[in-house]
C-alpha cells in the first residue's frame, strides 16, 4: 500500500521551472531516499509535500484522504535548517508543538519525554534552545517532527550538517524507525542513502531520472570492476590482458588499473593465471560492484 502518490508535480519560480513533472509513490513503512545534487529540486519537492509551498501543477494524493483536505496532521517535517523559539527550552518547544498538533497536555508531556530520550538529548531538555549545538538542534528537529505520530516523516538533509558521530546516530535512529513509519529523506550523501533506504529516487534538474529499490538499481547499473595494483606501471600487463580477454574500459592511474569487464569469472581466472605464470609484480587484486556513487554519476551523465 502506498502512503502517498505524487503525480506530475510541477513548480515554476517566475520563469524558472524547478520541478518538471515529478511522479513517484511512497510505499508504507519504507525508507525512501531522494537523491540529487545541489539545486536538483529536492528541498522544493519536500516543501511542496509538507504544504509550505504551493505547487504549479500536478497532484499529491495521500492514501485514504480526499484531495483538498488538510494533510498536515499526517506529516512530520524537518527542514534543512531547523529553527526554534530560542527562548524556549527543548522540552517546552516539544510540548508546545505537541499541544498545537492536538495532543492533550498529559500526552504531550509523555511524548516529549519519550522523544527526548529517543533522539538522545534527554539531559538537555531543560536547557534553553539558544544554548544548543547544531547537532542537538538537528535531534530536537527530528523529535518535533515525530511528536504527533505522523504517517509520513519528511526529512530534508537530516545528516548533512552533522559530524560523523552525529551522522551515525541519526542513521541508527532512521533504522529504528524503519518498519514503523514511512520516511522520505533527501540527501546528496550517497553512502547514507545506500545504508538505510529501501528505495531510491534520483532527482536531476527537477526530474526523476531513475528510481527503484536499492537491489533493483544495483542490479541494473552494476558493472563488475576489477582493480589491479602493480609495483610498477601496469601498461604492459594490460596490453597482454587485452589479447586474452575482452575489456570494456581501462582506467590507468599511476600504478593502479581499473578494468570494466562483462565476464567477471572468466576475467578473474585469466588474470590470476597470467600473473602466476608470468610472475607479475601484483600488489593488489580486487573485484567489486559499482557503488551508488558511480551509479549516480552514470545516471546523471546519461542525461
Amino acid at each position: 500500500m502506498n502512503v502517498l502518490t505524487v503525480k506530475e508535480l510541477r513548480k515554476k519560480f517566475k520563469r524558472n521551472n524547478v520541478i518538471k513533472g515529478v511522479s513517484f509513490e511512497l510505499p508504507e513503512k519504507k525508507i525512501i531516499a531522494l537523491l540529487g545534487a545541489n539545486g536538483a529540486g529536492k528541498t522544493t519537492t519536500l516543501q511542496i509535500i509538507a504544504g509550505l509551498m504551493n505547487k504549479t501543477g500536478g497532484e499529491i494524493q495521500f492514501e485514504g484522504v480526499e484531495a483538498g483536505t488538510d494533510t498536515r496532521q499526517m506529516i512530520g517535517y524537518l527542514p534543512q535548517f531547523p529553527v526554534f523559539y530560542q527562548w524556549m527550552s527543548g522540552k517546552e518547544f516539544l510540548q508546545y508543538v505537541g499541544k498545537l498538533s492536538g495532543l492533550s497536555n498529559e500526552a504531550a508531556a509523555k511524548k516529549t519525554t519519550e522523544l527526548l530520550a529517543l533522539v538522545g538529548i534527554a539531559d538537555a531538555g531543560k536547557k534553553k534552545i539558544a544554548n544548543y549545538s547544531g547537532g542537538m538542534k538537528q535531534r530536537l528537529g527530528i523529535a518535533q517532527a515525530l511528536i504527533h505520530d505522523p504517517k509520513l516523516l519528511i526529512l530534508d538533509e537530516p545528516v548533512s550538517a552533522l559530524d560523523p558521530l552525529g551522522r551515525r546516530e541519526v542513521i541508527e535512529l532512521l533504522k529504528k524507525l524503519k518498519t514503523q513509519i514511512t520516511v522520505l529523506f533527501s540527501t546528496h550523501i550517497l553512502s547514507d542513502a545506500e545504508e538505510v533506504s529501501d528505495e531510491i529516487l534520483f532527482l536531476h534538474h527537477g526530474e526523476i531520472v531513475e528510481s527503484g529499490s536499492l537491489e533493483a538499481l544495483t542490479a541494473k547499473y552494476k558493472q563488475p570492476k576489477i582493480t589491479l595494483v602493480f609495483e610498477r606501471s601496469p601498461q604492459s600487463y594490460i596490453d597482454q590482458l587485452h589479447q586474452a580477454l575482452k575489456i570494456d574500459e581501462v582506467d590507468i592511474n599511476g600504478k593502479e588499473a581499473v578494468l570494466l569487464v562483462n565476464e567477471t569469472d572468466k576475467a578473474r581466472d585469466i588474470i590470476l593465471q597470467m600473473s602466476v605464470e608470468d610472475r607479475w609484480p601484483l600488489v593488489k587484486f580486487e573485484m567489486s560492484k559499482a557503488k551508488l556513487e558511480e551509479m549516480f554519476l552514470k545516471v546523471v551523465q546519461g542525461q
Binding site: 509538507a50 504544504g51 509550505l52 488538510d70 498536515r72 496532521q73 506529516i75 517535517y77 527542514p79 535548517f81 531547523p82 529553527v83 526554534f84 523559539y85 508543538v97 498545537l100 498538533s101 492536538g102 518535533q144 504527533h148
Partner: peptide
C-alpha cells in the same frame, strides 16, 4: 524570516 513560523505551520495549526 528565521523559519520558525514554517516549523509551527507544518503542524496542523
Amino acid at each position: 524570516k528565521s523559519g520558525v513560523a514554517a516549523m509551527i505551520l507544518v503542524k496542523p495549526v
